[in-house]
Amino acid sequence: MAGILSRGVMTSGGAGVDGVYNQDLSPNSMTIEFGGVDNTFEEVYRSADAVAEVIQEYIYEELDR
C-alpha cells in the first residue's frame, strides 16, 4: 500500500518554549505522536501500524546480530 505517512513535522520554539516533551526522562527515549484534530481514527491507526512494522523490523534485526 502506497501513501503519505506524514504531512510534515510541526516544531515550536521561541521565548518560553524549551522543546522538551518527556524525552528528557531517559537518554534512550523518544516521543511519537499520531494524528491531530484533522485526522480520522482510521488515519491514526494506519500510521501507528506502519510505524509499528518499522520498529518490529528493527528489533528483529538487532536480535539477529
Results as ranks from 00 to 15, higher is better:
residue 2 A to Y: 13
residue 2 A to E: 15
residue 2 A to H: 15
residue 2 A to T: 15
residue 3 G to K: 06
residue 3 G to F: 03
residue 4 I to A: 10
residue 4 I to Q: 10
residue 5 L to D: 14
residue 5 L to I: 12
residue 6 S to P: 01
residue 6 S to H: 05
residue 6 S to F: 07
residue 6 S to E: 07
residue 7 R to I: 04
residue 7 R to S: 05
residue 7 R to M: 06
residue 8 G to C: 00
residue 8 G to P: 02
residue 10 M to S: 14
residue 11 T to P: 03
residue 12 S to R: 14
residue 13 G to C: 01
residue 13 G to L: 02
residue 13 G to V: 00
residue 14 G to M: 05
residue 14 G to A: 06
residue 14 G to E: 11
residue 15 A to G: 08
residue 16 G to W: 06
residue 17 V to W: 05
residue 18 D to K: 10
residue 18 D to W: 04
residue 19 G to E: 06
residue 19 G to N: 09
residue 19 G to A: 08
residue 19 G to F: 04
residue 20 V to Y: 09
residue 21 Y to W: 09
residue 21 Y to C: 10
residue 21 Y to I: 12
residue 23 Q to R: 14
residue 23 Q to M: 13
residue 23 Q to L: 08
residue 24 D to A: 02
residue 24 D to Y: 01
residue 27 P to V: 00
residue 27 P to S: 09
residue 27 P to K: 03
residue 27 P to C: 01
residue 28 N to K: 05
residue 28 N to D: 13
residue 28 N to V: 03
residue 29 S to I: 03
residue 30 M to C: 11
residue 30 M to G: 08
residue 31 T to L: 15
residue 31 T to W: 08
residue 31 T to P: 05
residue 32 I to N: 04
residue 33 E to R: 04
residue 33 E to S: 12
residue 33 E to L: 03
residue 34 F to S: 07
residue 34 F to I: 06
residue 34 F to M: 06
residue 35 G to P: 07
residue 36 G to D: 13
residue 36 G to T: 03
residue 36 G to K: 12
residue 37 V to C: 05
residue 38 D to R: 10
residue 40 T to A: 01
residue 41 F to E: 13
residue 42 E to K: 11
residue 42 E to N: 03
residue 42 E to F: 07
residue 42 E to P: 02
residue 43 E to T: 03
residue 43 E to K: 01
residue 43 E to S: 09
residue 44 V to T: 13
residue 47 S to L: 05
residue 48 A to G: 12
residue 48 A to M: 14
residue 49 D to M: 14
residue 49 D to S: 15
residue 49 D to L: 15
residue 51 V to K: 01
residue 51 V to Y: 12
residue 52 A to M: 02
residue 53 E to V: 07
residue 54 V to D: 04
residue 54 V to Q: 07
residue 54 V to L: 10
residue 55 I to G: 00
residue 55 I to F: 13
residue 56 Q to K: 07
residue 57 E to K: 02
residue 58 Y to T: 15
residue 58 Y to C: 11
residue 60 Y to F: 03
residue 60 Y to K: 09
residue 60 Y to S: 12
residue 61 E to C: 05
residue 61 E to M: 06
residue 61 E to T: 12
residue 62 E to S: 06
residue 62 E to C: 04
residue 63 L to W: 01
residue 64 D to Q: 04
residue 64 D to V: 00
residue 65 R to T: 10
residue 65 R to C: 08
